[in-house]
Amino acid sequence: MRNNFLKCLLLLLMTAFIFSCATSKQNKTLKYAAYLMVYFKDDDHSLHMAISTDAKSFTDVNKGKAVIAGDTIAEQKGIRDPHIFRGSDGTFYLSMTDLHIFGKEKGLRKTQWERSDDYGWGNNRGFVLMKSKNLINWSVTRVRVDQAFPGFEEIGCAWAPEVTYDDKEKKLMIYYTMRFKNGKNQLYYSYVNDDFNKLLSLPKLLFQYPKDISYIDADITKVNDQYHMFYTPHDGTPGIKQAVSNKINADYVFNDTWIDPEPKACEAPHIWKINDENRWILVYDIYGIKPHNFGFMETTDFKSFKDLGHFNEGVMKATNFSSPKHAAVISLTKEEALRLAKHWGMDLQFKN
């Protein structure tokens, strides 16, 4: 009987190992054919999705209407700054700022912000974290940074959370903008559990800007053995800069070069790879113009960037929506894109 038990145990371990190897290689073997953009709008503070088959023309899956209403998932009845990440096992992770900046105007609260002006603009304290296997059915968790760890009760904001995977620590890493009371905004990171509903580690500083100013909205992309972090310093007119490191959460080297060509203020940089090509597209939110819009740039080496213009003012098109805010983009397989489109009644066509 003991021998049979050991044989069964060995078989189970071998099966688990084979499954683990297979899922860890899943992203490398998937054939990507489309792109999913997530964004939000100021007028509804809700989650929106758009699909593209060519990385240039994006069509909203729900004709410009929200796919998930912010007042159904957020403590403050609104979300901002959505980011989407695909895990190696095919799981999708959405992270968003739990904040409605027009809460008073919409009758959601009696004051401009939840707390006094001593805590500064916005002064929220948490995120909305969501997890899905199919981009349609999502688990939802509200995470309050001020309640997660002693000593963080007086934070002034928790904004623009993004998720990646730390290969060294074998953990999901969430990084975000945070400040204490009404001090300067800086970039921090924590680890988050696999269930995507709990912060595991104290917030730590991700990057130190050399000037005593606010800097926000980090976006990290691994290319070969280096991590490229785009972010927005409020160093004069806010715009986009890049810092590079060989570590995911430390030793980013400051570079004073402005990446964007915009004369007006912009923020929320995000970069994504073109399927099967050595090209990346950088998108950012130009909030300093009216109506606000996205700007786009293209790079092959992360050193030189080609200006692609704005949505519907160049090669990049938004076919059935306007005034998007804070985008993030991932690649989808043809099957994933068609399933999502079918769910929302969208007629998605592929050329081949």
Rank of each mutant, 00 (worst) to 15 (best):
R2G: 09
C8G: 08
T15G: 12
F17Y: 14
I18L: 15
C21S: 10
T29C: 12
T29Y: 15
Y32R: 06
A33H: 11
A34L: 05
Y35L: 07
L36R: 00
F40K: 00
H45D: 10
I51L: 12
I51K: 00
S52L: 05
N62R: 10
G64Y: 10
K65M: 03
A66E: 14
I68D: 03
Q76V: 03
Q76R: 05
K77C: 02
H83E: 09
F85Q: 03
D89A: 12
G90M: 04
F92T: 01
F92R: 01
L94G: 00
F102G: 11
G103C: 05
G103T: 05
T111S: 01
Y119P: 11
G120R: 01
N124I: 06
S139V: 11
T141F: 14
V145A: 05
A148Q: 07
E153N: 12
E153V: 01
E154H: 11
I155L: 11
G156R: 02
A158R: 00
A158G: 01
A160F: 06
P161D: 05
K168F: 04
M173F: 13
T177M: 07
R179K: 15
R179Y: 15
R179V: 08
K184A: 08
K184I: 07
K184Q: 11
Q186P: 10
Y189L: 00
Y191W: 09
N193D: 13
L202V: 08
F207G: 00
Y209H: 14
P210C: 08
K211G: 04
I213M: 06
K222H: 08
K222Y: 11
V223W: 14
N224A: 15
P233Y: 09
G236C: 04
T237W: 03
I240D: 02
Q242R: 09
K247F: 13
N249C: 00
N255L: 12
T257F: 03
I259G: 06
K264A: 14
A265S: 13
E267V: 09
A268H: 03
W272S: 06
W272E: 04
N278T: 07
N278G: 07
R279I: 14
D285Q: 06
K290I: 09
H292R: 10
F294E: 02
T299A: 07
D301M: 07
F302I: 04
D307H: 07
D307F: 09
G309F: 06
E313Q: 15
P324L: 07
H326M: 06
A328E: 09
V329A: 01
S331Y: 00
S331Q: 15
S331T: 09
T333W: 03
G345Y: 08
G345S: 11
Q349D: 14
K351G: 07
K351R: 02
